[in-house]
Amino acid sequence: MPVVMDADRISRSLARIAHEIVERNKGVNELALVGVRTRGVPIAKRLARSLREITGHDVPTGALDITLYRDDLMRHAVGPQPLVRRTEIQFSIDDRKILLVDDVLYTGRTTRAALDALIDYGRPKGIQLIVLVDRGHRELPIKADYVGKNLPTSPDESVQVRLLEIDGQDEVVLEQGGAS
């Protein structure tokens, strides 16, 4: 069960991403962070803190639940429905550049659902994708704009991101067996 990122590595990666965001967008005007539930949300909040430290400006931050937009919701005739949680976006996304934040980018299906969900809230000026880990094996034409770590994996491995706010510690672990 190799640890592929420890707490230091995660925090350095997020700090680097924060600087890249400022550089690429020439500041943080018009930006907003939206974390995909569950683990995208604390990552988005950490990035908001870093952006504040770098620029002195607050970036609005929200949480997006994509359950109702999943493409596998009604694929099975029978089976328990996944848990739906609240989406909290307390600002207008119209004409803003949205930084969509998730922990792991894999098939791209979650990101597709998140894009559909976001666009129901308005018409953003643009959407950029931030992920802590890109593990490959895309099934849709989706690419991240900011990546914490590119991690070559095989489909029978699973990537577990653990975060202090939810799991009590910061680490990314590569496990054998079971899709993530």
Partner: peptide, 23 residues
């Protein structure tokens, strides 16, 4: 709890989600 998430859907500009599409 699920109804709390559903209530938020009713506050959006587009009050519709695709969850039961085709049902």
């Amino acid at each position: 709890d699920t109804a709390e998430a559903m209530k938020e859907v009713g506050t959006r500009p587009i009050k519709k989600v695709p969850a039961l599409r085709g049902k």
